[in-house]
Design a protein around this nucleic acid. Structure first.
Length: 578
RNA sequence: GCGCCUGUAGCUCAGCUGGAUAGAGCAACUGCCUUCUAAGCAGUGGGUCAGGAGUUCGAAUCUCUUCAGGCGCGCCA
């Protein structure tokens, strides 16, 4: 790529300067920005190299830029060099070099924009990982869209990415799910239904389906009033104890059935949403403290060997305060059971033991308090805690008819991911989920996502793609050769703005991947669509001369490739017709 | 109280690895369809980038501070 070459020339120039220490060089290199310009008025490529070097070396940036200009102008791809403002360098490429991006895109097609900056790094990204106690809701949808888009971005920069879902199939929430289903079996009325149990319709469905498929029957006598307790948590615990011990067969049959069912529905929702995990890791496989060979025991033993644990009040603690945590955390309760934290420690050890160069967790923002303690546990086991990167996803609020859509999980009525997809479709959902930086609150406007006005950027972008496709079909029917001369030789310059925007694409992908910011792609697409629509209005393409027409279509086909590739990074299919 | 995030045009948001006049869309007003998809284009007006201080040749962007809003702080999962 042309940018790479120019960067090399600039770096060589900097290195040749007098009185340059190694430190200066590193600092200068890290601050230099040599980019495709945002605006053709500033040349094709612009660099702040001389400003940065001038500042650090305490010399006049303008004098530096004069020298650099002499060197750059020698390059065959560069037609002109301008010095602007306090010492910016603005480069103009020759027609040939300028046009080369079109050939490059047409040649590389779906790999255009990709790089190998990730150098085959093995990265695991864990996302969604919702508790298997009910259907995915719109909050999970955001994590799903974000995690999947990040995986695509990282793959595009050459990383080997594995997507994983962590299934919390051990612990109390599974007991509550099981209990909820059993209580539906024995027809506890809605009024008597425990406050802490799950009440959604899906529970009733699971219950009914189990009844019709299994010979096991809930025929024991059960009087809910015997379990009453002012604290709903204690109430449900009493019921769990009873059901577990007195009806073991039924308990395990239903537990398995319920988990399988919920998991199946989660998998279906994700598949529908165009998200596919490579691995499903079950918490239960981490084992328990009763088994010395389990992952849980091994990680706790390791921490103990390293002298990081201590006993207090009958419990075993990890001294996470040694690594910036607010307080120390319990690994094993005074009754001998492991905490959720202990499972998490074992799980993260397991992940790193699998040999990933980096593990990424996509977590709900409400979990941000957990980052320190996990990092502390990894550091305590002598892992490099920088191998773990946690990305937080803020909540999404749905708006419809100008007001917030209520989402009450307690009553079991919520707007599920499946509802959202049914409402506005997979692609528009993914698009709007990704339209804002993940760690910030998102107001998701359902009316906007369905609107047919320009304010609906999703359609605005798709419309550009569809228009190109439509032109292309007509062009193909005209059977004209594929000369690109009039753009190459500069006779026809009306697509220059489009070509110029195309040149930015690889650097946009790189930036989006480096920062894990898929929304950068969205705003780039919006600008790209605007450039295209503007061109389309000003130029009646099909009535151009044959030479111009075929030239234009080569540029537009390159543009179409970029639209397609960029949308694909977001997991969205481009529309050919609208 | 502690931690994280946010505050940019009337509204919804970009821009934040410091850079050249702070950008879009909506809303308001004005134009553009006998020709390729008007789900479009062109234009006008609209800003003390929450307030203050600092670092810098240069700050919406970095540091400190004040104010306002959101979220999180269990031997829950």
């Amino acid at each position: 790529m042309i940018l790479y070459k120019i960067n090399k020339i600039i770096f060589e120039f900097i290195e040749s300067l007098d009185d340059l220490t190694n430190e200066d060089l590193i600092s200068i290199k890290s601050k230099i920005n040599t980019l495709i310009s945002e605006n053709l008025e500033r040349g094709h490529i612009t660099s702040n190299a001389c400003l940065v070097a001038g500042n650090i070396l305490k010399t006049n940036p303008k004098a530096l830029s004069e020298k650099l200009k002499e060197i750059l102008i020698e390059d065959a791809a560069i037609e002109n060099v301008e010095i602007a403002g306090p010492g910016f360098i603005n480069l103009y490429l020759t027609r040939e070099a300028f046009y080369s991006v079109v050939d490059d895109a047409l040649l590389k097609e779906e790999t255009f924009g990709n790089s190998n900056s990730g150098k085959d790094k093995k990265i695991q990204i864990e996302f969604v990982s919702a508790n298997p106690t009910g259907p995915l809701h719109v909050g999970h949808g955001r994590g799903a869209a974000y995690g999947d888009a990040c995986a695509r971005l990282l793959s595009a920069t050459g990383c080997k990415v594995e997507k994983e879902y962590y299934v919390n199939d051990a612990g109390r929430q599974m007991d509550i799910l099981t209990t909820s289903v059993i209580l539906r079996q024995i027809n506890i009325s809605d009024d008597d239904f425990p406050a802490s149990a799950y009440k959604g319709d899906y529970i009733k469905n699971i219950s009914n389906n189990f009844k019709s498929q299994s010979s096991k029957d809930a025929t024991f006598s059960f009087d809910i009033s015997k379990f009453s307790d002012a604290d709903p948590e204690k109430q449900i615990d009493k019921i769990i104890d009873f059901l577990k011990t007195d009806n073991e067969d039924l308990w395990f049959a239903i537990k398995k059935y319920a988990l399988d069912n919920v998991l199946m529905s989660i998998k279906n929702d994700l598949e529908e949403f165009n998200v596919k995990h490579d691995e499903w890791f079950f918490e239960s496989t981490l084992g328990s403290t009763l088994n010395q060979d389990s992952d849980i025991s091994k990680s706790i033993n390791l921490l103990t060997e390293k002298g990081k644990t201590f006993e207090k009040d009958g419990a075993i603690w990890l001294q996470t305060t040694a690594f910036e945590d607010d307080k120390d955390r319990v690994l094993i309760r005074d009754d001998g059971r492991a905490t959720y934290f202990a499972s998490d420690v074992a799980y993260h050890k397991n992940k790193l033991d699998r040999g990933f160069d980096k593990i990424i967790n996509i977590w709900g923002a409400d979990h941000h308090g957990y980052i320190k303690r996990i990092e502390a546990s990894l550091a305590s086991m002598n892992f490099d805690k920088n191998k773990l990167q946690v990305c937080l996803v803020q909540f999404a609020n749905l708006f419809q008819g100008g007001s917030k859509v209520k989402m009450s999980t307690r009553s079991g009525e919520f707007f599920t991911l499946a509802d959202l997809i049914e409402n506005i479709g997979v692609d528009a959902s993914r698009f709007y989920y990704l339209s804002k930086q993940a760690d910030q609150h998102l107001d998701f406007d359902l009316d906007l996502a369905k609107s047919d006005k320009k304010e609906n950027i999703y359609y605005y972008i798709q419309y550009a793609h569809a228009r190109i496709e439509s032109l292309n079909e007509k062009f193909i029917n005209m059977s004209i050769g594929s000369s690109k001369n009039t753009i190459k030789n500069g006779e026809y310059k009306n697509c220059d703005k489009i070509i110029h925007e195309l040149m930015r694409y690889p650097e946009i992908v790189q930036r989006a991947a480096d920062n894990m910011h898929p929304h950068i792609i969205i705003y780039y697409l919006r600008d790209l669509a605007h450039t295209f629509h503007s061109f389309y209005n000003d130029n009646h393409v099909l009535s151009e001369s044959e030479d111009n027409l075929s030239s234009i279509m080569s540029a537009l086909n390159a543009l179409k490739i970029v639209f397609g590739n960029a949308l694909n990074l977001l997991g969205i299919s481009p529309l050919n017709k609208m």
